[in-house]
C-alpha cells in the first residue's frame, strides 16, 4: 500500500471513531444513579470516600436507609442529600430553603441545625462508635476517612 492510501484509511478510521465517540458521549452521559454508590467529598483536609452502597445494602453493612436519612423521622421523604438541610455554613436567622417545603418559617424558628461538616462528622463517627466498627471520632482517626 502506498502512504497515500494509508493516509486515506487513517482519516476514514478517525472519522468513524469520532462518530462512535460522539454517540457514546451524547447518548450515555454520565448520570448520577438514583441511589448513590460511592460518594466523594473533596475537603480542605483531603478527600473522603464514602461507600454508600456498602453501608446501605444487605450484603454490606445492612443499615436501614432511615438510620442516616433522619428527617423527617421514619419517612421516605427523608431520602435526600444532607446538604439540602445542613448548609456549609449556618447563619443565624436564615432557614435553609428545603425546610420551607414542609414547614412554615415560624414553626421551626430557632432549631439548632448543625452545619454540613458537623452533621457528617457527628453522624458518621457517632454510628461507628455505637457499632464499635468503622472510623470513630478522635484526632487519631481522621486519616481513616480522609485521604490526605
Amino acid at each position: 500500500m502506498t502512504s497515500k492510501k494509508h493516509r486515506t484509511v487513517a482519516y476514514a478510521v478517525a472519522v468513524h471513531l469520532l462518530l462512535v465517540a460522539i454517540v457514546c458521549y451524547a447518548a450515555f452521559p454520565v448520570t448520577q444513579p438514583e441511589k448513590p454508590i460511592r460518594l466523594v467529598y473533596w475537603t480542605n483536609a483531603g478527600k473522603v470516600l464514602f461507600n454508600h452502597e456498602l453501608h446501605s445494602s444487605d450484603t454490606g453493612f445492612g443499615l436501614s436507609c432511615l438510620d442516616c436519612h433522619h428527617h423527617p423521622p421514619d419517612d421516605d421523604q427523608a431520602l435526600m442529600a444532607c446538604s439540602q438541610c445542613h448548609p456549609q455554613k449556618v447563619k443565624d436567622g436564615v432557614t435553609p430553603k428545603a425546610c420551607l417545603d414542609c414547614h412554615d418559617a415560624d414553626e421551626i424558628e430557632g432549631t439548632e441545625l448543625p452545619n454540613k461538616s458537623d452533621a457528617f462528622h457527628g453522624q458518621c463517627t457517632g454510628c461507628h462508635e455505637q457499632f464499635g466498627k468503622g472510623p470513630p471520632s478522635g484526632s487519631d482517626n481522621c486519616s481513616k476517612c480522609h485521604v490526605m
Partner: peptide
C-alpha cells in the same frame, strides 16, 4: 462499558486528526 468506548474512540480519532 460504553463510556470507555467513547473515551477510546475519541482519543484515537482526535489524535489522528490533530496530527493531520
Amino acid at each position: 462499558g460504553v463510556p470507555a468506548l467513547g473515551v477510546i474512540c475519541l482519543a484515537v480519532s482526535s489524535a489522528i486528526l490533530w496530527e493531520g
